[in-house]
């Protein structure tokens, strides 16, 4: 039982990061019907931004918060560590939003009128460009992420047989992911920007006839999706303290599978699908064969396309001429 609980906790934490990536996929797909292959690379760039921010400014920020909270820069406190992590995540989110804006402006917008296959090829090209340019820029060897939470002990419940270990970082990741998702939900369903986004995703031409600046809304969607991926990048970097230029492609693709599982274009579906995928992966590596873990997401994808192509929460939309 304790074993099972442990897998569930790992799965939820993994599912949270998938969800943050999947949201970007599903938002961009909802508004442009484009699989933004470069999204996984935005996630990677977020992790690297987090790495370099915490490497060069992390101690200074930590010291400032320590002084504010405890009066002395030397005394470590959990609160200061959490605040530092939040600042680093915000920096990565801003950088990734800028990257998302540039990608949309330079690569996707000029092609918006062209056939969809051209957009798709461009997306693949952008993704590979970031992967390989990342290897040139950062080096292809994995880099260690500085540990901000080094003074924190893992929380343990139960004893010997029924021991459950919870890393405070996992809890932090989970709570941050849920918070960001709630903020996103609020933006999409309760603000003017969100209403405009939903209108554009419903019909570009009609939305622009109603006076909605379509281009700006699409750019905003890219920026929001990319910033969430950036946040996920920092959190993954913190949890598995290793960052490398190719780290984005596999989680990116898996998150896309999760988005399709939940129903692509559907925000709630993306979150649901991601948690299902995270849990399934954790249980498979726990009880089954961990070596098959990476193939699970794609197997789920093929099965869901075979059984219910619109996904768990998606609605079937007929294609109109």
């Amino acid at each position: 039982m304790a074993e099972f609980a442990q897998y569930i906790i790992n799965g939820l934490s993994q599912g949270g990061t998938y969800a943050l990536i999947a949201l970007g996929y599903t938002m961009v797909f909802g508004i442009l019907q484009l699989i933004n292959f470069a999204h996984g690379e935005v996630f990677m760039l977020g992790a690297f931004t987090g790495l370099y921010t915490s490497k060069y400014a992390g101690l200074a920020i930590l010291g400032t918060f320590n002084r504010l909270l405890t009066g002395s820069a030397e005394t470590a406190s959990t609160g200061a560590a959490i605040l530092t992590a939040i600042v680093i995540i915000l920096v990565a989110m801003c950088v990734c939003a800028a990257v998302g804006f540039c990608v949309e402006r330079l690569a996707y917008r000029p092609l918006r009128a062209s056939p969809r296959i051209n957009l798709l090829i461009t997306a693949v090209g952008v993704s590979l460009f970031f992967q390989n340019a990342g290897q040139l820029l950062f080096g292809s060897d994995p880099k260690a992420f500085p540990d901000l939470f080094e003074n924190l002990e893992p929380w343990t419940f139960g004893a010997d047989e029924n021991l459950i270990v919870i890393n405070p970082l996992q809890v932090f990741v989970f709570i941050t992911a849920i918070t960001l998702m709630l903020i996103l939900r609020h933006v999409i369903f309760h603000t003017r920007l969100g209403r405009a986004m939903r209108a554009v995703s419903f019909n570009h031409d009609l939305a622009s006839l109603m006076g909605i600046p379509t281009n700006q809304i699409i750019a905003a969607t890219f920026m929001m999706g990319s910033s969430l991926a950036g946040a996920a990048g920092v959190m993954v970097g913190m949890t598995y303290p290793k960052v490398e230029p190719l780290m984005g492609s596999l989680p990116g693709l898996k998150a896309f599978c999760a988005a399709v599982l939940g129903g692509i274009g559907n925000v709630t579906g993306a979150v649901l699908g991601s948690f299902i995928l995270g849990l399934a992966e954790a249980l498979l590596s726990g009880y089954g064969t961990p070596t098959y873990k990476d193939a699970l997401a794609f197997t789920i994808l093929i099965l869901i396309l075979l059984v219910k192509p619109s996904g768990l929460l998606g609605v079937n939309r007929t294609e109109k001429v």
Partner: peptide
């Protein structure tokens, strides 16, 4: 091909990509 080609073209891209991994 059968499950993904019933749908629009871009699903094939991701399924074939995933297939390489499988």
């Amino acid at each position: 091909g059968l499950p993904s080609l019933r749908l629009r073209g871009d699903y094939l891209a991701i399924v074939t990509l995933g297939f390489g991994e499988i």
